[in-house]
């Protein structure tokens, strides 16, 4: 639940149900969680799948510190990071990925995979993700492949000269 809330801070989405606590509902349409961020993080190929519990523990420690510093009360029935309002989750993530954070690379990595789940569906074959209406690829308007699963765009060019070439271009087409 904690890492869902983190992924939802990177690419926010709408709540999956009215009582969804991890997803804050800050943006219409599916976000990183609906896109499969947790499935991706749990994929051994990422290299982070074995340390997710550590990530969640550290994130909740940072959330508790943030709450204390800002005098925020936390709902103890959910993990501290999940208990934070979206704006405060965002503030924690900004701090963790900021220039002054010693272990920022760890948090950038977590953000990177959260982002990849949404923008590339890296835990799925892209053809399957497209067929399933993957929320990230759909949001981006990623265009469909041909029936054989390969992309081809026979229409790709305006087909006319749109600028004058540089006057010093050499006969081989390079800068002089």
């Amino acid at each position: 639940m904690t890492l869902e809330a983190f992924a939802d801070t990177i690419v926010p989405g709408e709540k999956r149900s009215p009582d969804d606590r991890a997803v804050a509902g800050a943006s219409p349409g599916g976000g990183a969680v609906a896109a499969g961020a947790i499935e991706l993080l749990e994929t051994p190929a990422t290299g982070v799948s074995t340390v997710l519990d550590d990530y969640a523990r550290m994130l909740n420690e940072h959330a508790r510190t943030h709450a204390t510093e800002h005098g925020l009360g936390l709902d103890e029935t959910v993990p501290p990071f999940v208990a934070l309002p979206f704006e405060d989750r965002t503030a924690v993530v900004r701090k963790l990925t900021g220039q002054d954070q010693e272990d920022r690379e760890l948090w950038v990595l977590l953000a990177l995979f959260s982002n990849m789940a949404f923008d590339t569906a890296a835990h799925m074959h892209t053809a399957d993700a497209m067929a399933a209406g993957h929320p990230g690829l759909v949001t981006m308007g990623f265009m469909k492949a041909d029936d054989d699963g390969l992309w081809r765009f026979p229409d790709f060019s305006y087909g006319r000269r749109l600028a004058d070439p540089h006057p010093d271009t050499t006969p081989t087409g390079s800068p002089a």
């Binding site: 690419v11 976000g31 965002t90 993530v93 982002n115 981006m140 990623f142």
Partner: peptide
């Protein structure tokens, strides 16, 4: 990252 970035990605 965040809400505004998602809107940017929507225009990818």
């Amino acid at each position: 990252f965040g809400v505004e970035k998602k809107e940017l990605v929507r225009q990818w």
